[in-house]
């Protein structure tokens, strides 16, 4: 009995851990394509369609800030937009370095992917 409860709990935990990949953010709108500071020319080619943004979130991993810090460039080029995660409304940002963040009503998280952007 104890073993069955432990296995059920483990199953729930694994489902919870995979929540983002099983039910990724639904991109509904791109609201801003821009740059931090005066890096306009450097960022000129960083443009994403809604489909490309959706593909990014479909493949990116949820990561910690330490992973962002250690393994990724955070570039001045970004695309921002809106979306939904389940019933929650969210805002998101994708950085040209391959990182992203999602802010929803009840949760926020960071994402990263090395090969999920067109450039």
């Amino acid at each position: 009995m104890v073993k069955e409860i432990a296995l059920a709990a483990l199953g729930l935990l694994l489902l919870s851990c995979n929540a983002h990949s099983d039910n990724p953010l639904r991109v509904t709108e791109i609201t801003e394509i821009g740059t931090e500071g005066s890096s306009g020319d450097f960022c000129a080619d960083f443009v994403l369609s809604e489909k490309q943004a959706q593909d990014y979130f479909g493949h990116a991993r949820v990561v910690t800030q330490k992973t962002v810090h250690d393994d990724y460039d955070v570039l001045p080029c970004f695309v921002r937009g809106k979306g939904t995660l389940g019933n929650q409304r969210c805002e998101w940002e994708i950085n040209a370095g391959g990182t992203g963040h999602v802010n929803c009503a009840q949760q926020s998280y960071l994402t990263a992917c090395k090969d999920c952007l067109p450039r």
Binding site: D41, G97, R119
Partner: peptide
């Protein structure tokens, strides 16, 4: 370097 076309941002950095 910064304005290279057709090169990934990670390659540029």
């Amino acid at each position: 370097i910064l304005l290279q076309k057709g090169v990934s941002y990670s390659a540029i950095t």
